[in-house]
Amino acid sequence: IRVFLPNKQRTVVNVRNGMSLHDCLMKALKVRGLQPECCAVFRLLHEHKGKKARLDWNTDAASLIGEELQV
């Protein structure tokens, strides 16, 4: 999953079965001084340019493999 972060940063996270978005993104956020409780995560909708859909931090990350997200 490719993730666009604040301050023009980005990362790619690996996903294993059973992991939530929170689990996958925790380290990437922590390294940058961010906390999931203070952030929202969105899936970028490529079929609708510029649109995005808000996701819950408990979403199964395996269902988002190959997607691009924005925090």
Rank of each mutant, 00 (worst) to 15 (best):
Ile1Cys: 05
Ile1Ala: 01
Ile1Asn: 05
Arg2Ala: 07
Val3Arg: 03
Val3Met: 04
Phe4Ala: 08
Phe4Gly: 08
Leu5Lys: 01
Leu5Gly: 00
Leu5Ala: 01
Pro6Ser: 00
Pro6Ile: 07
Pro6Leu: 05
Asn7Asp: 13
Asn7Leu: 00
Asn7Tyr: 07
Lys8Val: 00
Lys8Gln: 11
Gln9Asp: 13
Gln9Phe: 08
Thr11Asp: 02
Val12Phe: 09
Val12Ala: 07
Val12Arg: 05
Val12Ser: 11
Asn14Ser: 09
Asn14Leu: 10
Val15Thr: 03
Val15Lys: 03
Val15Ala: 08
Arg16Ala: 13
Arg16Glu: 15
Arg16Lys: 11
Asn17Gly: 12
Asn17Val: 11
Asn17Met: 11
Gly18Cys: 06
Met19Gln: 14
Ser20Arg: 08
Ser20Gln: 02
Ser20Cys: 03
Leu21Asn: 02
Leu21Lys: 00
Leu21Arg: 02
His22Gly: 12
Asp23Ser: 09
Leu25Val: 01
Leu25Cys: 04
Leu25Arg: 01
Leu25His: 05
Met26His: 14
Lys27Ser: 13
Lys27Ile: 12
Ala28Phe: 02
Ala28Lys: 09
Leu29Gly: 02
Lys30Glu: 14
Val31Met: 10
Val31Asn: 10
Val31Leu: 11
Val31Phe: 10
Gly33Tyr: 05
Gly33Met: 02
Leu34Asp: 09
Gln35Cys: 10
Glu37Cys: 05
Glu37Ala: 06
Glu37Ile: 04
Glu37Lys: 06
Cys38Ala: 14
Cys38Ile: 05
Cys38Gln: 13
Cys38Gly: 13
Cys39Gly: 02
Cys39Pro: 00
Cys39Ile: 00
Cys39Val: 05
Ala40Gly: 10
Ala40Asp: 15
Ala40Ile: 08
Ala40Arg: 12
Ala40Cys: 12
Ala40Met: 12
Val41Trp: 01
Phe42Trp: 04
Phe42Leu: 03
Phe42Lys: 00
Phe42Arg: 01
Phe42Asn: 01
Arg43Leu: 09
Arg43Ile: 02
Arg43Asn: 00
Leu44Gly: 08
Leu44Asp: 08
Leu44Pro: 07
Leu45Val: 15
Leu45Tyr: 11
His46Gln: 11
His46Cys: 10
His46Arg: 15
His46Asp: 12
His48Asn: 12
His48Tyr: 06
Lys49Asn: 12
Lys49Ser: 11
Lys49Pro: 12
Gly50Gln: 12
Gly50Cys: 13
Lys52Pro: 11
Lys52Glu: 15
Lys52Ala: 14
Ala53Phe: 10
Arg54Met: 12
Arg54Pro: 11
Arg54Cys: 06
Arg54Gln: 14
Arg54Ser: 13
Arg54Glu: 15
Leu55Ile: 13
Leu55Ser: 06
Asp56Met: 07
Asp56Lys: 02
Asp56Cys: 03
Trp57Ile: 06
Trp57Lys: 00
Trp57Gly: 01
Asn58Lys: 10
Thr59Pro: 00
Thr59Asn: 02
Thr59His: 05
Thr59Leu: 08
Asp60Arg: 01
Asp60Phe: 06
Ala61Pro: 03
Ala62Cys: 13
Ser63His: 07
Ser63Ala: 11
Ser63Thr: 11
Leu64Ala: 01
Leu64Thr: 01
Leu64Asn: 02
Leu64Pro: 04
Ile65Gln: 09
Ile65Glu: 06
Gly66Val: 02
Gly66Glu: 06
Gly66Lys: 07
Glu67Gly: 04
Glu67His: 14
Glu67Met: 07
Glu68Ser: 12
Leu69Met: 01
Leu69Thr: 01
Leu69Pro: 06
Gln70Thr: 11
